[in-house]
Design a binder for these strands. Structure first.
Length: 200
DNA sequence: CAAGTGATTAGC
DNA sequence: CTAATCACTTGC
C-alpha cells in the first residue's frame, strides 16, 4: 500500500525532520502515456530559511524565482541552473516561511524504460544519481514550478516502511561554497551505501 | 579537471 | 543596461 503524503507532512516546522523523513519515499511523475515513472528518494538537502546563507531565500530575498519558496508546504519549487539543468525541491512549512528540501538522488522504481529514453546513459546507475539527472529522468522542467504536490501531476508517496535511523547519514551540503559559516552545516541526508546518492 | 549553457541577480 | 554567478553534468 502506498498513500500520498498529506499536507500535514509538508507543513511541519521542522524542516530537518522533513528532509530526513523524505528518504525512502517515492516521487512519482506520470509520463505522457499515463505510465508511472518513479523513484525512491535516497538523498536530500534542507534549506533553512532567511538565516541560511546557502538558501536562495537568504535574508528574505523575494524575487520572481524565489517567490515559490514562500508558498505553502507541499508545493514544488523547480528552477533552472547552469544553463541546462533543473532542480526539484519540496517547499516545507507555513506560507511565507521560505524553507525547502532539495531532492538530490533517487533509486529508480517504476517506468525505468522512460528514464532510459530521456537519459541514454550506459549504466542505470547514472539515471537518477544527482539533482539534475533525476529531473531529466522524470521529465521535470520549469512548468512544474509551483505545482501542488497533492495534485495529479507530481506527488510523493509513503511506501509503508521507514528508513532505519542507523541507515541515514548526515553531512555538509554540496555546491554551496559561498555560504560562509553555513557551508559545514550537516543538513544533507542520504541513505547509507545507496548507489544512487550523488556522491559518497 | 574544465567547458558548457542561459536565467537570474546585483550593481551601476 | 551589463556582467558575474550559479543548490550541475559530462567528456576529456
Amino acid at each position: 500500500m502506498s498513500a500520498w503524503l498529506n499536507r500535514e507532512f509538508y507543513t511541519r516546522r521542522n524542516t530537518l525532520l522533513v528532509a530526513r523523513q523524505l528518504l525512502g519515499k517515492r516521487l512519482v511523475v506520470p509520463a505522457s502515456d499515463g505510465a508511472r515513472v518513479s523513484g525512491l528518494i535516497v538523498e536530500t538537502e534542507a534549506y533553512m530559511g532567511p538565516q541560511d546563507k546557502a538558501s536562495h531565500a537568504f535574508n528574505n530575498r523575494r524575487t520572481k524565482r524565489t517567490e515559490t519558496m514562500y508558498a505553502l508546504g507541499g508545493t514544488a519549487y523547480v528552477y533552472f541552473i547552469y544553463g541546462m539543468y533543473f532542480q526539484f525541491n519540496v517547499v516545507v512549512g507555513a506560507e511565507d516561511i521560505p524553507h525547502a528540501v532539495l531532492v538530490r538522488g533517487l533509486e529508480p522504481d517504476e517506468g525505468v524504460e522512460w528514464m532510459r529514453v530521456r537519459r541514454p546513459v550506459k549504466r542505470d546507475r547514472e539515471l537518477t544519481s544527482g539533482p539534475g539527472k533525476l529531473c531529466m529522468a522524470l521529465g521535470i522542467d520549469r512548468t512544474f514550478d509551483r505545482e501542488d504536490l497533492l495534485g495529479q501531476r507530481i506527488w510523493i508517496e509513503d511506501v509503508g516502511h521507514r528508513v532505519r535511523a542507523a541507515n541515514i547519514v548526515a553531512g555538509a551540503r554540496v555546491g554551496i561554497d559561498y555560504a560562509a559559516e553555513y557551508v559545514d552545516k550537516p543538513w544533507r541526508f542520504w541513505i547509507k551505501d545507496n548507489p544512487y546518492v550523488s556522491r559518497a
